[in-house]
């Protein structure tokens, strides 16, 4: 009856819930008293200044870093304490895109994307081949790129390959650390379209860190603002923009921001 427990279908609990989280590096608290609850199907943009702890927060959500205090639940359960099989089953339900890509440097593009599929040990090579090619096509990579090594890729291509790898296991939840940094505007747009489409088809939940207001305005259904070591505001873009806080003011109400957000508003209306 293990399968039952591996596929809990409790759709009602928040997909991510972070309670009273605190993180300390040495003597320095990076996060403190942080609360965040993310519902299924949301596209959450996590914004915050550089060095404010966005990557650190993501690393705690995906269980790479154990919080100094507080609790993180993902799909309603804690990653740890349920044994290794259970942890693996949970981990297979979310995909992670690292800020620096984190591709396996000894494997070529194809094998990087095929790696998680092979780890499943369920699919034959023909099926894996088709899935890998599909994922590569989804992130707009050409079949001839499949044989390249990570060191031979451009910065933006690294991002797209690691996105393809994160998508390989058809995750329910995607954690993306600056997915559009290093992409040209065209690719940024098609990335936004891809994620939007996947969200509609698969009911994907996405948490993404971004500094790019165009991406944020086009994709995010909710915005979480990380400042002063906690989530300062969490809600729809409009609500968050209304808050009166120096960081929010600088981030959303600068001239540049106004331009980007207006443009986005126009395109969504049209």
């Amino acid at each position: 009856m293990r399968d039952e427990s591996l596929h809990p279908c409790n759709d009602q609990v928040p997909i991510i819930s972070v309670r009273n989280l605190g993180t300390r590096f040495g003597r320095n608290w990076v996060l403190r008293n942080l609360d965040l609850e993310i519902e299924r199907g949301e596209m959450v943009a996590l914004v915050g200044g550089s060095g404010s702890g966005k990557t650190t927060l993501l690393r705690q959500i995906d269980g790479l870093l154990i919080p100094t205090e507080g609790e993180v639940r993902i799909f309603g359960e804690s990653l740890f304490g349920g044994g290794i099989l259970r942890e693996r089953a949970i981990r297979r339900r979310f995909g992670v895109l690292f800020q620096q890509g984190a591709l396996f440097s000894a494997l070529n593009v194809y094998d990087n994307v095929a790696f998680p599929l092979r780890e499943l040990k369920l699919l034959d090579e023909g099926m894996i081949h088709d899935l890998v090619m599909l994922k590569l096509a989804m992130v707009e990579l050409l079949p001839q790129h499949a044989a390249l090594m990570p060191a031979e890729l451009s910065g933006g291509m690294i991002k797209r390959v690691s996105l393809a790898r994160a998508l390989a296991l058809e995750p329910e939840l995607l954690l993306l650390d600056e997915p559009t940094a290093g992409l040209d505007p065209d690719r940024s747009d098609s990335f936004v379209r891809l994620i939007c489409g996947l969200g509609a088809e698969l009911g994907l939940t996405v948490v993404f860190v971004t500094h790019d207001l165009d991406t944020l305005a086009a994709l995010a259904t909710k915005v979480a603002v990380l400042a002063e070591q906690r989530i300062l505001a969490y809600g729809a873009l409009r609500e968050v923009m209304q808050m009166d806080h120096p960081f929010i003011h600088n981030f959303f109400h600068s001239e540049r921001a106004a331009r980007a957000l207006n443009a986005a508003a126009l395109t969504t209306k049209a």
Binding site: S5, H7, C9, N10, D11
Partner: peptide, 10 residues
Amino acid sequence: MKPGRRFVRR
């Protein structure tokens, strides 16, 4: 689908 109910997906 009731909240919290678990079943085998097929």
